[in-house]
Design a protein around this nucleic acid. Sequence first.
DNA 1: GTGAAAGCGCTAACAG
DNA 2: CTGTTAGCGCTTTCAC
Lengths: 342, 342
Amino acid sequence: MTKNTHRPLTLRDVSEASGVSEMTVSRVLRGRGDVSATTRDKVLQAAKELGYVPNKIAGALASQRVNLVAVIIPSMSNMVFPEVMTGINSVLEGTELQPVVGITDYLPEKEEQVLYQMLSWRPSGVILAGLEHSEASCAMLRSAGIPVVEIMDVDGTPIDTAVGISHRRAGRQMAQAILKAGYKKIGFMGTKMPLDHRARKRFEGFTEALAKAGIEVSDQEFYSGGSALAKGRDMTKDMLERTPDLDFLYYSNDMIGAGGLLHLLEKGINIPQDIGMAGFNGVDLLDGLPLQLATMDACRKEVGKIAAQIIADRVIHGTENSEKIIELTPKLNLGATLRDPQ
Amino acid sequence: MTKNTHRPLTLRDVSEASGVSEMTVSRVLRGRGDVSATTRDKVLQAAKELGYVPNKIAGALASQRVNLVAVIIPSMSNMVFPEVMTGINSVLEGTELQPVVGITDYLPEKEEQVLYQMLSWRPSGVILAGLEHSEASCAMLRSAGIPVVEIMDVDGTPIDTAVGISHRRAGRQMAQAILKAGYKKIGFMGTKMPLDHRARKRFEGFTEALAKAGIEVSDQEFYSGGSALAKGRDMTKDMLERTPDLDFLYYSNDMIGAGGLLHLLEKGINIPQDIGMAGFNGVDLLDGLPLQLATMDACRKEVGKIAAQIIADRVIHGTENSEKIIELTPKLNLGATLRDPQ
DNA sequence: GTGAAAGCGCTAACAG
DNA sequence: CTGTTAGCGCTTTCAC
């Protein structure tokens, strides 16, 4: 019953089974060089019969090339990142490159560890979220000698290349749209995540633009943990009890915004006349809500695609990308929760 | 400007910089064997100063051990799978093992390709969704000589070990709960995914249990693509127009169920008296809905944890798991959309 | 078209 | 406690 006799097959096994030299077997299996049709068939047949699976570890060491792209993101449960991954995948699928994902939980130290782990596989490129990294991380990235694409943010200085939107600008833009619509008493709800720099920048841009119009956020609250939908609902309830004269609620993400929306609808509040609302991200997950929430698209899938394309071009064709900062423009969607400008 | 002179550092560089043999450097860096504090410090210092990152490719080849666990799942956008990943991660984080994810899009051929790619890295173990695989995939898995854990389903014969719930039983159980509550005219809505075997088994179990009570599904509809929430809403609207006398709606996932719920609420239908509803999965993402949707928890996170634990135990401690089929019991949550049994 | 030799960067196994 | 020697399974390079 014990099949401890098990030894993974090697090129040599295929070589012996087919009576062809290891070298030629290798060539056939990689589709390289000219090999006569006869030998090729012999080799392919033998490989298939044996159930040979090449050893990429050995291949990579010998060829000094690893077709891996390290993708380092803060979280898997944020929905935003799976979408970015989808974009990355869609591009890499057409190539020999393969993504490998690492999760940082928004912690710089963990990012550093994950990065170290990843780099020890000598990937062909790195895609990582954000522009803020520990010094050690930056040093590793710079000296890795591989393309590095920082995604989801362009407010800062990239190590190599950045692809994303300006969250500061996004925050400002939303504030302007809100002001233009005539709202004046604004409440803000967000996640309690000092290390989510993108949320922070959005909020900064937001308050900055309000300040320019002489307005301050009238109330604010930050949550952590739990179901976002439920939290949005609860926070909204609390905030309106605390500060009943608010006429606008800005949420740092669509999910809590949706929770708030459900609460307001239940209370029979007239949206967007009495109270307007807006979120952020444009998750189409929420398309079926009773009212379309005003939001701003972070171009997640596109960001993933572009980042992957840059890596692929660099690795495969040696093409250097000319633009070092690629800023995408988030689309503002007024939905049905932000009244038309007066 | 071209820094093509770049050459990744090797053990030898650290060895030279510290005046210690490569072997000892290797020992220090891996924390193996007894090394005097003095030499250790020398080595660590040199490694840090140089910014040395070990080459795992070479290490893996030399030691014949690769600390990778292949995780093969159908999709990233299903929410279910990111959650499973979270469970897997939480266990593997405490070990030296690292997950590597592959996506199959529910396609057997793609699964085969992804599996082949993964196995060529000689991972220490494989976790993959479902019990249905192509013959070639099964052959590869069997002859890989590594632990294989099939997750999310136990209705079938595992290659090695299976961890999950019985979807057939889950379907039956939901049907029984519905019947017990006195509902009789039942509509079903699901995804158009012939290759989602788990959804299929759930539906089979469901209809089977209904049949036993002499009842058939009165109407059914399957969708594909688009926002699940919106689709749920639309399908529900269509179905109720088509078959107005339905008194229960069973959805193959919570997301479309939530869409349907929002629609019914808007129409002012009395839930669960006039129409009852249920979904599947127990995504706590939806916790904040106006009414808690009846659902059944697929134990996603736990499945991930157990699967990872089995692999970890086998790889690290050589412990063989005694149970080859680990069936978890999905918790039935009646929520507020399934009236109490009469 | 095919093969032989020489490593890739590291670690197992054994000496000292 | 530390160093030496041989590979791991492949691919590169150069012969034939």
